[in-house]
């Protein structure tokens, strides 16, 4: 019961941060204005417009991306049975950066048929890199987790090197600014048109894993024991991998790669909820979203109006907490 209480508390905190976050921006706006904007929305009132069309999608995107990365990290750590795993280990982030950077360097048009290409190519880059890592990690009709991670790291380095080369050859400062965005992430591009992609991907993935929860927990016992218990290990791994790639791909394409969340939030979850529990995944997603919303809010409060790149904040606040977690004696992966 107390576990459910944690989940409810996380959900309530999300609502509180949402309310606080809605008040932060260039236009002055207190709770009354926020309430006004939702209850008596006036499209000609720019404050209302900013609250509903800029601030709300930004906060929700932070929530969705934080939840996605935490959730994907949790799945991947369970799959490879290693607490060092994080969603970007498969090369997803660097692949996305490379995809987006290719546009900024003018190799392709930035807008094609009304579609703004950087997020599209970022998703393609993320997905292709992950796919290549999976192909390299696949041997004798079996997915070998350690090989998969090594392939991911190698491909990641390759993509980073290509981005580095393009950065070095860059002839304009502006391009470097785009690269900063695509290496540290930001939620500034959030909009109601962008939000549904990562949100729907996350919701479907969460729904799927309500059914796969049991298999996931059995997998935590190790591949051999799981196999002995009748689990179709290979199939479960494929489901996890596909989910992680899609969820991470969409989140990185919409906000750039935001580091650290996918690594620490699963640990936070297990330290509070235990190694396996029926509410773990949901709690992990909620806490990931909450953490990301808080980080975005802090980044904008510290350095208005755009905020410090979000990856810097997640590390600044995440690392001390992570160190505390590691130093606690009664927590092990």
């Amino acid at each position: 019961m107390s576990k459910l209480l944690y989940v409810t508390a996380a959900l309530l905190l999300i609502l509180v941060v949402l309310l606080l976050g809605l008040q932060v921006g260039s236009f002055e706006s207190g709770i009354a204005t926020i309430a006004d904007a939702f209850l008596y929305y006036n499209p000609d009132n720019t404050t209302h417009f900013a609250i509903v069309h800029l601030r709300l999608p930004r906060l929700l995107l932070a929530l969705v991306v934080g939840a996605s990365l935490a959730f994907a990290g949790y799945l991947l750590q369970a799959m490879v049975n290693n607490g060092l795993a994080e969603p970007y280990l498969l090369g997803t982030a660097s692949g996305a950066s490379l995809g987006a950077v290719v546009v900024f360097f003018g190799f392709v048009e930035s807008t094609v048929a009304g579609f703004y290409l950087p997020p599209v190519l970022a998703f393609a880059g993320a997905f292709i890199t992950t796919l290549m890592a999976v192909m390299l990690g696949y041997r004798k009709r079996q997915l070998i987790p350690s090989q998969l991670l090594l392939a991911g790291i190698a491909l990641s380095s390759l993509c980073t090197a290509v981005v580095g080369l393009l950065t070095f050859l860059s002839d304009s400062e502006g391009k470097l600014k785009s690269i900063i965005f695509w290496s540290m992430g930001s939620f500034e591009r959030a909009s109601w048109t962008l939000l549904p992609y990562p949100a729907v991907a996350l919701l479907l993935a969460l729904l799927l894993f309500i059914f796969y929860q049991k298999q996931l927990n059995i997998l935590l016992l190790g591949a051999e024991r799981a196999q002995a218990l009748g689990l179709q290990v290979a199939q479960t791994r494929w489901v996890i991998l596909l989910t992680v790639s899609i969820v991470t791909g969409f989140s990185v394409a919409s906000s750039g790669p935001v580091g650290f969340v996918g690594l620490i939030i699963p640990h936070v979850t297990r330290s509070m909820m235990g190694a396996s529990g029926r509410w773990n995944l949901l709690f992990c997603a909620f806490i990931g979203g909450l953490f990301m919303m808080l980080c975005d809010l802090l980044s904008r409060l510290i350095y208005p109006p755009v905020g410090i790149p979000i990856g810097i904040i997640t590390s600044f606040f995440g690392v001390p907490f992570f160190v505390y977690l590691l130093s606690r004696k009664n927590y092990n992966f």
Partner: peptide, 12 residues
């Protein structure tokens, strides 16, 4: 400086 869409809306 880098600015947000909301900042531009406010500058109008």
């Amino acid at each position: 400086p880098s600015i947000t869409r909301e900042y531009i809306l406010k500058l109008n």
